[in-house]
Amino acid sequence: MKVLMKPIEMIAWFNGEKFPVPLRFRLQAEDGSNLVIKIDRILFQEEEKLAGNRMVVYRCEGVVQNLEKVFELKYEILTCKWFLFKM
């Protein structure tokens, strides 16, 4: 997997649990078009603390351009921002 750390737009489900559940996200492709990726399955989630910044890491599976791929998402708790960390 390649480290990207690109900001993304996320649709997530917030329930009574501790962390949000990601459903699908949109990112800008290299050619400038928008790419929407639906998350089929969350393999695991864990909280990490990097330089005092709390983040939640999600390893997910989804279909990207007709290929099943595994990727990692990060949710920054303090700023409520989502990032595509690895793909």
Rank of each mutant, 00 (worst) to 15 (best):
G62W: 01
N66M: 00
I39T: 04
M55K: 14
L27S: 04
P22G: 10
R54P: 15
W82A: 07
L73G: 01
M1R: 02
L35M: 12
R26P: 06
V56S: 01
M87W: 15
E68H: 01
E76N: 13
R59D: 02
K86F: 00
M55A: 14
V57Q: 01
E68F: 04
R26L: 14
F14L: 09
E72P: 05
A51R: 12
E9Q: 08
L23H: 05
A12N: 10
R41H: 13
E68Q: 03
K49S: 11
K6N: 14
L67D: 12
E46D: 00
L84C: 03
I77F: 01
M10V: 12
I77L: 07
R24S: 13
L23C: 08
Q45A: 10
Q65W: 05
K74Y: 10
E61S: 07
V70Q: 08
G52S: 12
D40W: 02
P7L: 07
I37L: 13
F85P: 10
G32W: 07
I37V: 15
F25G: 02
N34I: 15
Q45P: 03
V63I: 09
C60E: 06
I11C: 05
Q45K: 11
E30Q: 14
G52Q: 13
K69Y: 07
C80R: 07
D40P: 01
S33M: 08
N66R: 00
G16C: 10
E68P: 01
K2H: 03
K69S: 09
F44K: 08
D31R: 00
V21G: 00
N15T: 13
K6V: 15
K6A: 14
V3A: 14
V3C: 13
L43I: 09
E46N: 00
Y58L: 06
I11P: 00
M55P: 07
E68I: 04
L84Y: 05
N15Y: 11
I77S: 00
Q65E: 13
E61V: 07
E17C: 10
E17G: 13
I37Q: 03
